[in-house]
Amino acid sequence: MIGKYEIERVESGIPGFDDLIQGGFPKGTTVLVTGPTGSGKTTFAVQFVYKGAEMYNEPGVIVTLEERAQDLRREMKAFGWDLEEYEKKRMIAIVDGVSAVVGIPSEEPFVLEGNINAEDFLRYIYRVVKSINAKRLVIDSIPSIAFRLREESRIREVLLQLNTILLEIGVTSILTTEAPDPSRGRISKYCVEEYIARGVVLLDFVEKGVELKRYLLIRKMRETKHSMKKYPFEITEEGIVVYPSGEVY
């Protein structure tokens, strides 16, 4: 409850995480998942869509701008996630945003053209979402949008357009970005992403003795009461697990 009205929630499918955000993401919100390389951003995002289909019967779209769709499918099988199974059922759609850029032919059903502009990119994502009546959307990642569109100087404008469209069509969305230096407060590549998103989740590492431990911090989540503490999480054989009652770093 926030004030006197109840917020409809979308469960993340990530064990332990929803305990930190009053049961799930506010429905229709846009959440930025940020962190350094190797922190688990892609796994977090794909888990959100895959578990949405598997556990909650909610279709989802994954826009992959950093690796080919076939590579993403193969990597996710390490967690026992058969993305192709749900693609056949039209519960998941994967948009290949890599092949055309690097000049590799693609047989994927959803492929972004190599010379697409920002407006066409947004229209295409809108059409794919509508084609399977998606309730969840992942775009991995924001820096790759800027690189792909060759319009880095317009990234703030493009992100504002994107956020407006996502709010209009009502999907609950995760956008990923790089955090260059979280310890110094740099939690996004362009320093604008966190202001546009309605929620911000930071995945990072902390030194504990002679090893690195992963932690999660919810920097912002509108319409939600949440802790500002750092919580441990692991990437297990079945995906990400958050420990809300574990040791707080």
Rank of each mutant, 00 (worst) to 15 (best):
E54S: 09
D71K: 03
M76T: 06
K220M: 05
G24P: 03
I104R: 03
F17W: 00
N57W: 13
R184C: 08
G35A: 02
F205W: 10
S99E: 13
K41D: 01
L20W: 02
V10A: 03
E107V: 08
K51R: 13
G3E: 15
E107F: 15
F17Y: 01
I174S: 00
K130D: 15
L32D: 02
L167Y: 06
Y126Q: 11
V31I: 09
P105Y: 07
W81T: 12
L83V: 13
P36G: 12
V128L: 15
K189P: 04
F44I: 01
L212F: 15
L203A: 03
E178P: 01
E107R: 14
S227N: 08
Y126F: 12
T224Y: 11
P105W: 09
S245T: 10
N163H: 12
I165P: 05
E207P: 11
P180L: 13
A118C: 05
N57K: 10
V138Q: 04
S188F: 04
Q47I: 06
I142A: 07
G24I: 12
E119G: 12
R186E: 12
W81V: 11
A53V: 01
R73I: 01
Q22F: 06
A45G: 02
D96C: 06
L203E: 01
A78Q: 07
G60T: 02
T224F: 14
G185H: 08
Q161V: 01
R90V: 13
E58T: 10
N133F: 04
G114P: 04
P232N: 03
S39R: 01
L217K: 08
S141R: 03
D96G: 07
K27M: 03
L160H: 13
F79L: 04
D82S: 13
A134H: 02
E207A: 11
L175C: 14
R123I: 14
V61A: 06
S106R: 11
Q70F: 07
V158W: 00
I240M: 12
A118V: 07
T236L: 12
K208G: 03
I132R: 08
K77D: 02
